[in-house]
């Protein structure tokens, strides 16, 4: 029995908690991608770098607050700086929309043109972020590091294996729940949200009704920017901030959105967790876990790791290919990839 509990604690510590956290971060990112796809009908490749931009601004604001001695211990100061990052990112997205995408909307370009334009925006943002903050790793997490420490857990339960629950992990999960609840309330209950759904449903009819398309587009960018900044900051707090990592996040984020069904917010959340759990489960070494469960003689010699962590991005790719082959509309029916 104790062995079983130890195995469970081990799994929670190294698989379930990290995957929940990573899943929440992906879900928030994928929600932004899916909203833009649902309304503007193109895959926004610049989303990862929008996240990086928002996080960068938040980091600068955090550093500013830290040097001014402002703190909300035990919570990280970055939470206080978050509104600044959000405001800057919303402004950035609106300016980009005005100066880039609006032109293509006016000339009624096909989605692939928008997509290519977003690749351009991606490269520009990529450069801007690296130019300003540099390509290196930045740590900006402060406050209490743990909610539950592994040692305290061991002491409390008397088990060999501890579960460490980091503040950033708790914060990520709680924030994700709040943000998702607020987003769904907005989409289902407010006039703006309903306009967005109506526009996504039948664009021609929306233009014939009293819906102002430009306003719907503005609201969409605002939401996408808010979601991108929150997702980026949570990811940065949990791991660390490095512009290139955010660029790489684009793949699992898109995989999440597509697995769940592009254009479907519920799907984006489900997809985020599917991708996160797959990545973590596949890359975890089960040696210790199995040692607890099987008789001593059967204990494995190898690591029992399905895939080296270096290959974790391949997981997103494989899932993406499978979904596109078997069920191109995703788990929940989206608009098709």
């Amino acid at each position: 029995m104790v062995d079983f509990l130890n195995a469970f604690a081990l799994l929670s510590n190294f698989v379930i908690v990290p995957a929940m956290t990573y899943g929440s971060q992906l879900a928030l990112g994928a929600l932004g991608v899916t909203l833009v796809y649902g309304i503007l009908r193109f895959s926004n490749f610049a989303h990862g770098d929008t996240m990086a931009f928002g996080t960068m601004v938040t980091i600068f604001a955090t550093w500013g607050l830290q040097s001014a001695g402002v703190s909300i211990h035990p919570l990280p100061t970055a939470l206080l700086a978050l509104p600044v990052g959000i405001a800057a990112t919303v402004a950035l997205c609106l300016v980009i929309d005005r100066s880039v995408y609006k032109f293509y909307r006016k000339s009624r370009s096909v989605p692939v043109v928008f997509l290519i334009a977003s690749v351009g925006v991606m490269f520009v943002l990529n450069g801007v972020v690296r130019f300003i903050i540099g390509p290196g790793d930045q740590r900006f997490a402060d406050g209490e590091r743990f909610i539950i420490k592994a040692k305290a857990f061991k002491k409390l339960t008397g088990l060999n294996e501890g579960i460490a629950f980091k503040t950033s992990q708790g914060l990520t999960i709680v924030t994700a729940i709040i943000v998702v609840a607020a987003l769904f309330w907005f989409l289902n209950r407010t006039r703006s949200g309903k306009s967005m759904r109506a526009y996504s449903d039948n664009e021609d009819l929306a233009r014939l009704s009293g819906i102002n398309p430009e306003r719907v587009v503005m609201i969409t960018w605002t939401l996408a920017a808010v979601l991108a900044t929150i997702a980026g900051v949570l990811y940065g707090l949990d791991k660390s901030f490095k512009p290139f990592t955010y660029f790489q996040l684009l793949l699992p984020i898109f995989a999440s959105a597509i697995v769940g069904g592009l254009g479907n917010p519920l799907g984006a959340i489900a997809g985020g967790f599917v991708i996160a759990f797959s990545e973590v489960v596949v890359a975890y070494a089960y040696k210790k876990f199995l040692t607890y469960l099987v008789p001593e003689q059967w204990a494995p010699d190898s690591l029992v790791q399905l895939l080296s962590t270096d290959y974790k991005f391949a997981v997103s790719f494989v899932i993406l290919v499978l979904v596109l082959l078997i069920r191109p509309t995703g788990i929940f029916k989206g608009k098709g990839a």
Partner: peptide
């Protein structure tokens, strides 16, 4: 959805 210029449309 039909009537235009509703103030609820503004964030």
């Amino acid at each position: 959805m039909v009537p235009g210029d509703q103030c609820g449309e503004s964030l």
